[in-house]
């Protein structure tokens, strides 16, 4: 691969998915794209790059973009966000949405499903308090492959042992040979959809809670700010944004403010503005694209 080809690829990836490829990460290109080239019957990365420049090669181009994403995820990753979910966000929302009894949650980089399913397990654990509630979890990702895996909900023995308490494995999964599948009642709590965060996502409607973890780290500051500001518009003032352990809004934008003593948790504005409160229900009504049948209804 020539320096020119490298520069072109770098610009292409940035434009397609936001991925900023630093020079130290150059090695990733070979390990991730050589298999793609080989599968397409191409002899080299140069040939692959030439091919995706041709018109009518959008499938191959998408495969290249997806192959460059990092999809690692674990159940209950970093633990505290899920403790915050159960101990802070959920109790607050149970109170604030007591009238609508409706909650919308978005995992904006859902990858292979561990994050949305961890939330589904938290909700199921709190089932008693959610009688009569309709809770929606939407999981989106750029990559088709990871979404397929997320939908199937089948995990290896290794994957179910990284962060998943054994009691949750027994309670929520079924063993299939050497793999474990999350039960269908849990799968039905989550809806998956392909979505590129660089694109307009306002049609998804309003969300009370957004998990956007370990994806902004791959983008430059301008892209991060732009995405965060669009997300802020989709949240009521008492909604919660959850970022990854290595991510923050501090120094980037003030549309979100970090919550004191709750690491990784952010709220729009001051978190109380009453005028915006009711927006949740209204917006759900307009969020027609999300299949209503995928709402998890508790106690009905």
């Amino acid at each position: 691969m020539t320096p020119q080809e490298f520069d072109w690829l770098r610009a292409f990836l940035k434009q397609q998915s936001g991925l900023v490829l630093t020079n130290e990460k150059q090695y990733l290109i070979e390990s991730r794209l050589l298999p793609v080239a080989r599968k397409a019957g191409l002899a080299s990365l140069s040939a692959l790059i030439a091919k995706i420049k041709e018109p009518g090669q959008s499938m191959l181009a998408a495969t290249v973009v997806e192959a460059m994403t990092t999809n690692e995820s674990f159940f209950f990753r970093d633990k505290t966000p899920f403790e915050h979910f159960t101990d802070t966000m959920l109790p607050k929302m149970l109170e604030a949405r007591a009238r609508e009894r409706r909650l919308r949650i978005w995992c904006a980089a859902a990858s292979t499903g561990q994050e949305p399913y961890s939330l589904a397990m938290c909700l199921k654990d709190a089932e008693a308090k959610l009688a009569g509630w309709r809770v929606e979890i939407l999981g989106t990702d750029l990559s088709t492959d990871v979404l397929e895996k997320a939908k199937a909900g089948v995990y290896t023995q290794f994957e179910v042992q990284r962060g998943l308490p054994i009691n949750h494995l027994l309670k929520y999964f079924t063993q299939i040979g050497d793999t474990w599948q999350i039960n269908s009642n849990m799968r039905s709590m989550v809806q998956y959809r392909k979505l590129n965060l660089l694109e307009n996502f306002s049609s998804l409607g309003q969300f009370d809670i957004i998990f956007c973890r370990n994806v902004l780290i791959y983008f430059d500051n301008k892209t991060k700010v732009e995405i965060l500001e669009r997300m802020a518009k989709m949240m009521p003032a008492d909604g919660y944004l959850v970022l990854g352990a290595a991510e923050t809004v501090v120094g980037l934008t003030d549309v979100f403010r970090p919550m004191t003593e709750k690491r990784g948790l952010y709220q729009v504005g001051d978190g109380t503005a009453p005028g915006l409160r009711s927006s949740s229900l209204g917006a759900v009504g307009t969020a027609a694209p999300i299949g209503a049948s995928r709402f998890a209804s508790f106690g009905r």
Partner: peptide
């Protein structure tokens, strides 16, 4: 086996093969 172990008073359960990350997580 897992259910039997938990009923007998185990706190967690690792299925072999295991690695550092699994031991740490558990």
């Amino acid at each position: 086996h897992i259910a039997k172990a938990m009923r007998a008073g185990a706190d967690e359960y690792i299925m072999k093969p295991f690695d550092r990350e699994i031991v740490e997580a558990k």
